[in-house]
Design a protein around this nucleic acid. Structure first.
Lengths: 185, 185
DNA sequence: CGAATCTTTCAAATATTATTGAAAGATTCG
DNA sequence: CGAATCTTTCAATAATATTTGAAAGATTCG
């Protein structure tokens, strides 16, 4: 006999159709977002579980190797989206998912996307300096203008990210508070 | 003798340090954004060129195969960020880059990111329906709530994208008009 | 302590994605 | 038309990324 959608000792865990669907969707979305699909799938299963799960539960339910489970959990832990949970009387480790979605998303934005764009801005500024030193012909002039446009876009992206992140700095339910608008000028 | 940073007939084109730097940065950024690095590099070289360039120019300056150039240009064409240019008296095709950055970025947002999130929303709604039909125990209740949270986030993402896209619908320089704020409620 | 159980690591195997270059297909020119 | 030139396609190759599973390393229990 098998346990469907929940864990019982010594029984092989199976996912319900809903769990299967969600872990699949989130896996795909997370892959689209530049992470590994399994990260999304493992997190999803934990996120939908009433109780913390063991590495074996995850291996069985997602049908991936124990090595993959271990590596995926480590990576998820580094992003702070999965934590190890102590269960008394249990020898093995159990894991549960972070459930504050905004916390998770904003961390990626601040640690990954933001970093990426800042480094692009730096490099574009460097390029602009090269162009300032270059012979002052038509081509150089055009290139200065074009690189400036790129810089403007990159800086706008940075602003956007920072505005997004700022919404979460203060209050409890940042998702509800976000507002996007058009300036007058 | 070689032409540096510009094209002359029958001369092998070389990139200037600034061009090299920019095509590298943009290549990386575009790869981070889920496209192929060469797409970013090819577009960059065109974007910084005073005149349209031929496939050979791109092959030589970026040191990639002619096949890669052709495929990359086709793909860039599909995204509307590079266009074929007719040059009189020239037998081969020439290409130039779209320079309206917002136009390019918003197209990707509307055709790729938006689609992706809409399909995720659909699937999550489907999952919610499965859960509505499921036995009404604690686990099911928890999962309904969790999936609802995911849906809220996905819908917020969609709103954000749409707000972003709306800034560009009307006016000329959407980049300057974008404004992000916090709601009172 | 030593056996049992669990976790992590990592080299090898797979799978996926990107790139090349030559052949086939177009187009232009004389 | 037919040669010359240019472009595209695509099978083969190379480069990356992911996954496995067994061995090594920890930890817990009696």
């Amino acid at each position: 006999m098998t346990a469907i959608g929940t864990r019982y000792n010594d029984l092989i865990m199976q996912l319900t159709p809903a769990e299967l669907l969600v872990s699949d969707v989130i896996g795909r979305l997370i892959e689209f977002w530049g992470f590994k699909r399994n990260m999304g799938r493992v997190w999803s299963v934990l996120y939908l579980s009433t109780d913390p799960l063991s590495a074996d539960d995850l291996r069985d339910s997602l049908k991936i190797s124990s090595g993959a489970v271990s590596m995926t959990l480590t990576e998820l832990g580094r992003w702070g989206v999965v934590r190890k949970v102590w269960i008394q009387g249990e020898r093995r480790d159990f894991f549960s998912a972070e459930t504050q979605l905004w916390k998770m998303v904003s961390r990626v934005f601040s640690e990954r996307e933001r970093t990426e764009i800042v480094s692009a801005i730096d490099a574009l500024q460097e390029a602009l300096q090269l162009l300032d030193k270059a012979k002052d012909n038509e081509r150089t002039k055009l290139q200065r203008e074009r690189v400036r446009q790129l810089l403007d876009l990159a800086r706008l992206g940075l602003k956007l990210i920072d505005a997004l992140l700022a919404t979460g700095k203060l209050d409890i339910e940042p998702l509800a508070r976000l507002r996007l608008g058009l300036g007058d000028r």
